[in-house]
Computed example of a mutant assay.
Amino acid sequence: MSPNQITVDEDLHGLMMQSDKFTARELTDAYTQSRQKVCLNVPLTADQFRHHVSEHIMRMLEVGWVKRVRVYGGADQAFKLMAKPLNLEVTFISRDKPVRRRSPRRRKEANVPVSQEPVSRGPACARTEPKRYLGELHEEIRSDFLSAMGEAERYQQLIEVMPHLKGKLEGAYLDARDRRARLQGHLRAVQTTLSMLRA
C-alpha cells in the first residue's frame, strides 16, 4: 500500500472521534462492545479485537493521523486523533456498509457531484459469499503483510548503516518482524481455505 493510502475501519474511526484521548485498551473495549451489538460475518476473539485495534492505531500513527499524547507504557499509552493529512487517501471499510474512498482532493477541486461519485459494492458476507469474502480478506491481509515486510526490511537496513542506533531501532524492527510473521500465518490460512473451496 502506498504511503499516502490507508484502509480504516469506519466504526473504529468513529469511536476515535468521540474521545479527545484514548488508549488501545479503552478503544478495544469500546469497539468490542459496539461490534457485539451487530451481526458479525465471523465472530472475533478478544485477542483478534485487540490485534485489529492495535494494527489500526499503528498504521494511523505512521501516516500522522494519530499521535501519542502521553506515555504510561504498555496498553496505557494514550493517543489522539488528529486532522486527516491533506495528501492521504482513505478507504473506509465497515462490515455492515459499502466501502467508500475519501480522496485527498477536496470535492470542489475534483468537481464531481455527490450523486455521480462511484459507489463500491459492500463487503461480502462470509456465509453467503465465502469465496468473495475470502478474496477480499486475502487482499487486505496481503497489503498489511507487504507493509510489515517492507517496514522490517527498512529497519534492518537502517541498523546496518547506522549501527549506533541499533539500541533504539531494534525494538521497532522486532515488532515489525513479528507482525510480518503473524500476517504471513493469516495469509496462508486464508489461501488454504480458498484452495479448499475452489477444489
Rank of each mutant, 00 (worst) to 15 (best):
M17K: 11
T23V: 03
K84Q: 07
T91H: 02
D47Q: 10
G14C: 03
R59M: 11
E55G: 03
A124F: 13
E55A: 15
R50D: 09
K131W: 07
K131L: 13
S143K: 13
R25P: 02
L12Q: 06
R132W: 08
F49Y: 00
K108F: 05
L134H: 08
L61G: 05
L137P: 00
P130L: 10
G14T: 03
G74I: 09
V114N: 00
F79L: 04
A75M: 14
P130N: 01
C125Y: 10
L12H: 07
N41G: 11
M60N: 08
S54Q: 15
G74D: 02
Q77T: 15
V63N: 01
E140D: 12
V63R: 05
H138V: 01
G135V: 00
S103V: 08
E117I: 02
V119E: 07
Q48R: 06
T128Y: 09
M60Q: 14
P113A: 06
H13M: 09
F49C: 02
I93C: 03
I57F: 03
V63S: 09
P104I: 08
S94W: 04
R105Y: 14
L15N: 00
L88S: 03
R105G: 08
V38L: 15
V71T: 12
T45R: 04
Q36M: 15
A30R: 08
Q116K: 12
L86W: 14
R105K: 15
F79H: 06
I93R: 05
D29A: 07
F92M: 00
P85R: 13
G122P: 06
H51N: 13
L88F: 02
L44I: 04
R101G: 04
E129Y: 03
R95Y: 08
V53F: 07
P104F: 12
Q48S: 07
P123D: 02
L134D: 01
K67V: 11
K37N: 11
R95K: 08
L44T: 00
E10M: 12
Q116N: 05
Y72Q: 14
K80Q: 15
L40A: 13
P130M: 08
R105P: 01
A110K: 01
C39N: 14
K84V: 10
R127L: 03
A110Q: 02
R132A: 09
S94H: 01
K21W: 14
D76V: 07
I93M: 06
R107M: 06
R142L: 04
G73W: 00
V114R: 04
Q116V: 05
A124R: 05
T128L: 04
H56G: 07
M82F: 00
A124T: 02
G122V: 03
D11N: 13
M17G: 09
S115Q: 13
E55L: 13
E10P: 05
T32H: 10
Q33E: 15
S94T: 01
L86M: 12
A75D: 15
A124C: 10
T23G: 07
